[in-house]
Computed example of a mutant assay.
Amino acid sequence: MLDDLHRLLAELGYDETRRPGGDIGIGVDIEEVARWRRPDERLFTDAERGHCRATGRPAESYAGRWCAKEATLKAVSPFLAVGLRDVEIIAAPDGCPQVRLTGAGAGWAGTVRVSIAHSPSLAVAVAVASRHRGERETS
């Protein structure tokens, strides 16, 4: 997971020789998978529910998607005032999770990267948000 974080920071242009200042937000969330055996499906979009149901381990998938949504909220909070319904975790063609911001976050020009990991008992996600240079806060 730490390697993923370093990779994400490098992709976002983070330079370890300078402080990131207000240009980068980081969020992390962890959940017990057992809590997601019977999820409140209203918390997820149609695409998220479809993805989770299609996996062989839907509880792990729901827990991971929830963690990614929460981590994303934490990561973008320095830049945007968005809610959970404004954050959708979709699957890229290669299966990797991607963040789609809708509603209040739809026009944001920043970048959000997310990584999800889970075991049969725990799920965790880390999100890194980068505000592009010169972009003004919209919160």
Rank of each mutant, 00 (worst) to 15 (best):
M1P: 11
L9Q: 01
A10V: 08
D15G: 09
T17C: 01
R19L: 13
G21R: 04
I24P: 05
G25P: 00
G25T: 10
G25I: 08
I26R: 02
E32A: 14
E32F: 15
E32V: 14
R35Y: 07
R35I: 00
W36E: 09
P39N: 12
P39A: 05
R42I: 02
A47K: 14
G50W: 12
C52L: 03
G56Y: 08
E60W: 04
G64W: 03
W66A: 06
A68Q: 03
A68D: 13
K69D: 03
E70P: 08
A71P: 02
P78A: 11
G83Y: 09
D86H: 07
I90C: 11
A92L: 00
P93N: 01
D94M: 11
D94R: 05
P97I: 04
P97A: 10
G103F: 13
G103P: 15
G105N: 01
G105F: 06
A106Q: 15
A109R: 15
G110Q: 08
G110R: 07
T111R: 03
R113G: 06
V114M: 05
S115K: 07
S115E: 10
I116M: 04
A117G: 06
H118G: 00
S119I: 12
P120I: 02
P120R: 12
L122G: 00
V124M: 09
V124A: 10
V126D: 00
S130D: 04
H132I: 01
S139R: 15
